[in-house]
């Protein structure tokens, strides 16, 4: 008898029927071969929620055959060897319908060596923790001017002296032309809806650690006075998620988007939240 990792290979394969999870196999049928070199060959037949396992010399009629050495087989069954890795190392191969073989992998409970049945699974310890470090974010002169504008209910953009494109929120330089932006222009505050992302699964906001309420709409607004890709990103009134239309220009075909206007916060502090969100301008 051949043992690997302290476990007999024949014991492992012959325990397959006992480890079979009928409830998971309702939709699966077919015959599958195991060719474990010197250790032997087996045919596994699944159908009608049941399973039979028989030693077999010839496996040609199987839908798929797994070929590997007995050590790799036992290692995989014990969770000590990764099947995909073994395949990469050419220690394991599947002939025939690979996919079908993949589908039966989840049909069996984990093999537990004799005498260890009563050992409980190791409890896996996790630690939930929110790391939090207070910050003092500098605006610098460019972002500072933009944010001060919001305080006065103005949306400012900065213009590239070379290509003329407007950026809002503004950046210190035009990335395309690699020059400092110099000229300020007021844009909007109304505009056309150009982009909408419905967000159903919100990531935590790294500024608070809290997760936003969902669904919410992240939108790109083409503010009046801007063109092409010069959209301004903000939020949409969550009550109007289904009432807006996205505008576009594709191959010269113009489709008008909803008109939007900003809803200003009562108390404005010079932050992006000075605009609560955009809403339909009706």
């Amino acid at each position: 008898m051949t043992t690997y990792f302290g476990v007999n290979v024949v014991d492992v394969i012959e325990s397959l029927p006992a480890r079979f999870r009928e409830e998971a196999a309702a939709d699966i049928s077919g015959s599958f071969g195991y060719d474990l070199e010197d250790a032997g060959r087996w045919r596994l037949t699944i159908g009608g929620g049941g399973l039979t396992l028989t030693p077999a010399d010839v496996l040609d009629d199987c839908q798929a055959v797994l070929i590997t050495d007995p050590q790799t087989f036992v290692g995989i069954q014990l969770g000590k060897i990764d099947a995909a890795e073994a395949m990469g190392l050419q220690k394991l191969s599947v002939t025939g319908d690979r996919r079908a073989f993949g589908s039966i992998a989840g049909l069996f409970q984990k093999y537990v060596p004799p005498g260890q049945e009563t050992l409980s699974e190791v409890e896996l310890v996790v630690l939930k923790q929110t790391i939090s470090v207070g910050q003092n974010f500098a605006t610098g002169p460019v972002m500072g001017r933009f944010l001060k504008g919001l305080k006065e209910r103005k949306i400012l953009a900065i213009r590239c002296p070379v290509c003329g494109r407007r950026q809002s929120p503004p950046r210190e330089i035009c990335a395309v032309c690699r020059v400092r932006n110099t000229e300020w222009v007021e844009v909007g505050p109304k505009g056309e809806m150009r982009m909408l992302e419905y967000v159903y699964y919100a990531s935590p906001d790294p500024l608070t650690g809290d997760t936003r309420e969902t669904p919410y709409g992240a939108i790109g607004v083409l503010l009046d006075g801007c063109q092409d890709e010069e959209v301004f990103w903000h939020l949409l009134n969550p009550a109007q998620l289904d009432q807006v239309q996205m505008g576009s220009v594709i191959n010269g075909r113009v489709r008008k988007g909803s008109r939007l206007r900003p809803v200003w916060a009562q108390k404005r502090t010079g932050s992006i939240d000075d605009i609560q969100y955009f809403e339909l301008d009706t």
Binding site: V125, L127, T130, Q135, P141, G144, P206, G209, G270
Partner: peptide, 19 residues
């Protein structure tokens, strides 16, 4: 520096660490 100021905030991220 007339347009420069600072905004208080934090870096806060919930983690689930596995031992």
């Amino acid at each position: 520096t007339s347009d420069c100021y600072t905004i208080p905030g934090k870096l806060a991220l919930p983690y689930t660490y596995f031992a």
